[in-house]
């Protein structure tokens, strides 16, 4: 049941990929990268506080997975969540304003970087407790199964969370009850400062469901088409009533764990190597060029994205802080 989707698999499929699709993924990935770069900048300026975990380097995972989702499907992840929100279609202004803790933020400024939600796009957070989202995402799948609505829960977690006990409690029940959940393990090689090899007795995370009979694949998470291809297979499996499916995405984060992490646990050479040889955006850009897309067209997207992000930055700084009266709202729902 283990298989590895290599870049060559997706290259074969490229003949079926339309130029529009290429442009769409390029745009979405560049949006995440530029957004995150600006978030990092705003953090440095003191406009964003607390913890802020950037998604730079991992863009192909959220964008490729999103390509396999349908209306009503749910997405849930941990605290490195900005990329998933943008890929899900949330308004960059509302996300950035939440980072700055403003009234126009998606949680009215009360959630922050790690706690954002958007029912309209099926995004269920944004969770700060490592591994908790795995049980919660399994619960979202439980609701899909209960309602027999044909939807799937895309439940993301990292290589660090993969060692939490509740992950395996959830695997067991998801397979026992054949819940429609796709577990996406974003293996970016480091759980904060601890490498996978230093924290895990077995490092093939795609096989972490093996003792429950859950199929898993290791996927090149730096290749958006490899991700999309695997995502479609996994979603089909879950949607057709066969139960959960695990995708281990081999990816990499360029920045530290959070803004305050100098990332001394890995060498500059290691990071540069990934940036120059495996960058997900360079990869799709090359494909665009090979497909004969004009440089101007790519540039136009870059400019568009830049404008969107600048607008978000502007909004995040001009949106007022929440009114003090908001302090005591949203604690209870009126019965």
């Amino acid at each position: 049941m283990a298989r590895t989707a290599k870049a060559s698999d997706s290259d074969k499929k490229l003949s079926n990929v339309s130029k529009d699709e290429l442009l769409k993924y390029y745009r979405e990935m560049v949006l995440i990268r530029r957004f995150e770069e600006r978030a990092g900048q705003l953090y440095g300026m003191g406009l964003i506080g607390g913890f802020c975990h950037l998604y730079i380097g991992q863009e192909a995972v959220a964008v490729g997975m999103e390509a396999a989702s349908k209306d009503g499907d749910q997405v849930i992840t941990g605290y490195r969540d900005h990329g998933h929100m943008l890929a899900a279609g949330m308004d960059p202004k509302a996300v950035m304003a939440e980072l700055t803790g403003r009234a126009g933020g998606s949680s009215k400024g009360k959630g922050g970087s790690m706690h954002m939600f958007d029912i309209a796009t099926g995004f269920y957070g944004g969770h700060g407790i490592v591994g908790a989202q795995v049980s919660l995402g399994t619960g979202l799948a439980f609701s899909d199964h209960y309602r027999q609505n044909g939807n799937v829960s895309f439940t993301y977690f990292g290589d660090g969370a993969a060692n939490q006990g509740q992950v395996y409690e959830s695997f067991n029940m998801a397979q026992l009850w054949k819940l429609p959940v796709v577990y996406v393990i974003e293996n970016n090689e480091y759980a904060m400062g601890t490498s996978l090899a230093r924290a895990s007795a077995t490092i093939n995370l795609s096989q972490r469901g093996a003792s429950f009979g859950i199929p898993g694949e290791t996927v090149d998470g730096m290749d958006v088409f490899a991700v999309k291809d695997a995502a479609e297979r996994a979603a089909e499996h879950a949607r057709s009533g066969k139960g959960p499916y695990i995708l281990e995405m081999k990816t990499y984060r360029y920045r530290g764990h959070s803004m305050s992490d100098p990332a001394k646990y890995r060498s500059k050479e290691e990071v540069d190597e990934v940036k120059t040889t495996r960058d997900p955006i360079d990869h799709i850009k090359t494909m665009l060029q090979q497909a004969g897309v004009a440089e101007d067209e790519i540039k136009a997207i870059d400019n568009d994205v830049k404008a969107i992000v600048l607008e978000a930055v502007e909004f995040a700084q001009t949106s007022p802080e929440p009114d003090p009266s908001e302090l005591f709202t949203d604690i209870y729902t009126e019965a």
């Binding site: 749910q74 269920y124 919660l136 799948a141 209960y146 509740q166 959830s170």
Partner: peptide, 9 residues
């Protein structure tokens, strides 16, 4: 956790 997730939905 599964119950909490189902409640969120």
């Amino acid at each position: 956790g599964i119950g909490s997730g189902a409640a969120m939905a």
